[in-house]
Simulated scan of single mutants.
Amino acid sequence: FKLQSNTFITHIPYRGAGPALQDLIGGNVDMMFDGLGSSAAHIKGGRIRALMVSGKQRNPAFPDVPCAAEVGLPDYTVTTWYGLWAPKGTPADLQARIVEEVRRIGTADDIKAVWAKNGADYGGLTQAQFGTMVG
C-alpha cells in the first residue's frame, strides 16, 4: 500500500486484530488494515469507518465502500484466508474427517449467509489445494 500510494505510514505491530481494533475504536491509532471478518460488525455498527476494500470491485456486503481501483490503486489487492492446522503425524483419516466436517459446515446455507453478511465467502479449497497454496 505504501509503495502504490506513495504514502508514509508507520507500522505498529499488534498481537491480532482484536487488540488493534480496540486501539482503533479507542482513538489510539488513526487507521488499520484488516480483513472484513473481524471488522464487519464494527463497520456496520458505526464504530469504525471503512475507507476502501482491496481489489478491482466493491464488496457486495459494503456497497458504499469504494474499492482500491476506484481510489486510484488498481493493482492493490489483498485477500484474507483462514486455514486449519494439525500437529505433524496426525492420522490421515482424522485429517480427512476434520476437513469434511469443516466443508459441510462451511457450505451450510446459514453459515454462508453469515459469511456473506460480513463480506466473505467460504473458499472451499481441498486439503491438497490448501497445501499447495501455503507450501
Rank of each mutant, 00 (worst) to 15 (best):
Y76R: 12
P60N: 13
Q129I: 05
G135T: 04
P19V: 04
T77P: 02
R58Y: 07
D23C: 00
V99L: 04
I43A: 11
G37F: 11
A116V: 02
T90R: 05
V78H: 09
Q4R: 11
A86G: 13
S5N: 11
Y82V: 15
F8C: 08
S39V: 09
G131S: 15
L73I: 02
M52H: 03
F62G: 12
L24R: 07
V114K: 09
A113N: 03
G18C: 00
K2E: 06
G83T: 12
T90A: 10
R15Y: 10
D64A: 13
D34I: 13
N118D: 05
V53E: 03
R15N: 11
Y14T: 06
H11V: 14
I105K: 04
A92Q: 09
H42Y: 15
I43L: 10
G26D: 01
I12V: 15
S54V: 01
A17H: 14
D109M: 01
A20L: 05
R47K: 15
G123V: 12
Q4G: 12
G37I: 11
A61G: 08
A20P: 02
T132V: 10
P60A: 07
V134F: 10
T90S: 03
A40Y: 03
A120I: 01
I105A: 05
W115P: 00
C67M: 09
N59A: 01
L73K: 01
P74D: 07
A41V: 10
H42I: 06
G55H: 12
A61D: 01
M133G: 00
H42Q: 11
V71C: 12
V102F: 07
I111C: 01
E70M: 05
H42K: 15
K2Y: 00
M52D: 03
E101T: 07
A113W: 05
K44N: 14
Q95V: 12
W85I: 14
D121T: 13
Y82K: 12
A120L: 10
